[in-house]
Design a protein around this nucleic acid. Structure first.
Lengths: 113, 113
DNA sequence: AAGAAAGTGAAGCGGTTGCTTAACTAATTT
DNA sequence: AAATTAGTTAAGCAACCGCTTCACTTTCTT
């Protein structure tokens, strides 16, 4: 997956919509056609196609059309990328907290107190 | 169609904006005041405050005002929650892929072929 | 060949978002 | 006490989003 600038923007934008997250959730359980994706989604098929375009543009979902049915699958590498963005920030903060804890422990164990 | 958004909705909505992600990024390096958050952000202080409200409502950022300065910190537990949402879906898919691989290997090693 | 199924594209509409400016409060400096 | 700093709130506006309907194509099924 080529990591062009803006993919993170596209992915987080794509994940911001509850309907699209529901589609990702469905696809995490296995491939599905557009109609299958639409089925639990109280909206028109057309709306689902539009959401799908957003997901595909973000790289989170890959689709292939065979005959008249388009089959959709999630792209785990793209999911990892979003996951990593969050994880990187979280661990940076937690490392900072750890250093602070060590420093405080050091201070209170100082012999001169 | 107004449905009560849960924390996951609020968090992914909050993370969808590049400016807010930049604020989270800044806060991952340590606490900051509102003005410090605004400094690299080519927009008015007022706009930054509004972004901050979105981040705080989502639980991703905690703030505390002392005197006239409000200090902001990120909430790693909230970050983990978003991280876990993605991770859960990704690993579900990857486990599925693994099972499929095992099945295929079994089939091609079948003696009767 | 006729009809149904699966999806696509365009136009349009109302609600939401991100931003601005301006007027304001409260805390700190001078 | 006056000025400055730090932030807050409200009003308003342009752009964007999610959705609908309708017209359409392509691919199966009968």
């Amino acid at each position: 997956m080529l990591h062009q600038p803006g993919q993170i923007d596209l992915m987080f934008h794509a994940l911001a919509d509850p309907g699209r997250r529901l589609m990702v959730d469905r696809l995490s359980k296995g491939p599905a056609s557009v109609s299958q994706l639409a089925e639990p989604l109280d909206m028109s098929l057309s709306a689902v196609v539009q959401h799908l375009q957003v997901l595909e543009a973000s790289g989170l979902v890959r689709t292939e059309k065979v005959g008249r049915v388009r089959t959709c699958t999630i792209e785990p590498k793209a999911l990892s990328l979003a996951e990593k963005w969050i994880s990187d920030r979280r661990t940076l903060w937690e490392r900072r907290l750890d250093r602070l804890g060590e420093y405080l422990a050091e201070q209170t164990n100082e012999p001169g107190i």
